[in-house]
Design a protein around this nucleic acid. Structure first.
Lengths: 132, 132
DNA sequence: ATGAAGGTTCTAGCCGCTATAGGGTCAAGC
DNA sequence: GCTTGACCCTATAGCGGCTAGAACCTTCAT
């Protein structure tokens, strides 16, 4: 016996907001589900698992487009794994590149912060550094 | 004698796009400038300096709102420097927090990447890990 | 039968631009 | 003076990934 739950219950169960779940449906990451006579969406374990999948993938920083690709691949047992691999690999590269940028940024901000000893903007080295 | 340049020349001189300059004006980071009879904007060194300031601040990852505040402070010689300081400080904290998240992410992605040895999705540990 | 809690769709907003459409202006060369 | 072509103008819509709000409808317990 499969239990059917409402969107609010699914939301709670997966720590997602109901609006987000509906948004995922509109973005075609989740397919439309059966409804009550009154039009309420009813979800099963299948959709809950799919939503958890999405959340995990999003947690890796992947775009919805990438998540969609992964879902498509996951649905096809015989799909070549290489595509999965490359999505992850590219994301890793993006993360590493972003890391470099942020580390650079941290150094700059830290340097800037050090050099503020003044009381007023007139003598502020930060403003000076931005105006140069 | 101050030279007056068009938006395109300013754009080139500061490596910004003309649309972006107009956008900054609409967002009130740059104030409206004098125009030719035909309505072309004409810029002077003042605006060029201001735009460079904006670019430097944006390069630090600051929001336009923060940049606006900084510009306001920079305009007032007697403004207390503490506000400048705290904008920079908060940005540094944001960057550090983001760095932590990204480092965590890097580890996760790297671990995931290692474990893909399969040919097809059926045996793919990445998909498995996302589905669990 | 009623009321609260939760569901529905639709539209608009967030940030920081970017792109497109449909026009007008400027300066140079003839 | 006229044409050409590069440049400029405004206005509007779109990107991603939600989030908020309005105005309404359904469900379930009492």
């Amino acid at each position: 016996m499969e239990s059917r739950i409402t969107i609010g219950q699914l939301a709670k169960a997966t720590d997602t907001k109901a609006v987000t779940i509906r948004y995922y449906e509109s973005a075609e990451l989740l397919s439309p589900v059966t409804r009550t006579e009154g039009g309420y969406r009813l979800y099963t374990d299948r959709e809950r698992d799919r939503l958890i999948f999405i959340k995990r993938a999003r947690h890796l920083g992947l775009s919805l487009e990438d998540v969609k690709s992964l879902l498509g691949l996951a649905d096809d047992e015989n799909a070549p794994c290489g595509q999965v691999d490359s999505i992850i690999h590219e994301q890793l590269e993006r993360v590493r590149s972003r890391l470099k940028d942020l580390q650079q940024l941290e150094r700059e901000l830290d340097r800037l912060k050090q050099c503020c000893q003044a009381d007023t903007v007139a003598d502020c080295k930060i403003i000076e550094s931005l105006s140069r």
